[in-house]
Amino acid sequence: MVGCRDVERYLGEGEGRVHVLRGVALEARRGQVSAIVGPSGCGKSTLLYLLGLLDRPDGGSIRIGQQDVLNASDEERTAIRCQKIGFVFQFHFLLPEFSALENVILPMRKLGHLSTDAMRDRAHSLLDGVGLSDKDHRLPSQLSGGEQQRVAVARSLANSPSLILADEPTGNLDVTNSNLVFDLLTRLAKENGQAVVLVTHNPDIAERCDRRLLMSDGRFVD
């Protein structure tokens, strides 16, 4: 289980300082897909990055499993990200110099639990799962937007994380590809018992999630 309580976050400095999150609480369970929706600038992505340990809150607590990670060192947070968290961003953020297969291997290489052959086999299997087994050698620039995002989904699952965080994963895709990517993400997460928290502006996608959380002005509203 991954969750946060009473999370406060300010961004900016001086007169431009903005109170982005105001005492937010959230709990994500394995096998459950939660959607955070709300207007732009309400703090959705900020909350996602706090849950993904890419940022530190100004107050409150964040738990990954039984561990409170609020005061964890940078090394501990990095290790947790490697083992327990997978990210899918709006823009695929694949490394352009590496093939699809190599992009999927990157998280596994850092974790270091598998041999080179085993990493390649797993990457093949993940790319097969997102329907790209025949394009694993291609560079990101040789893939379509939908295909790139499917590689990003495969990459997020590489280390079998317990939490997948997706920041508008379909925001840059057409309807067909949006549905394809969303279906893949939710199917694979449910099959593997992973908690998924996604931020979206797409009401159809939000409707299809197990849980829909509406955020406004840094708070969840009913």
Binding site: T78, R81, F87, F93, L95, L106, K110
Partner: peptide, 12 residues
């Protein structure tokens, strides 16, 4: 790219 690597668990 650096930030993506960091998000995957690559250390400083």
């Amino acid at each position: 790219e650096i930030s993506i690597l960091r998000s995957m668990g690559y250390t400083r």
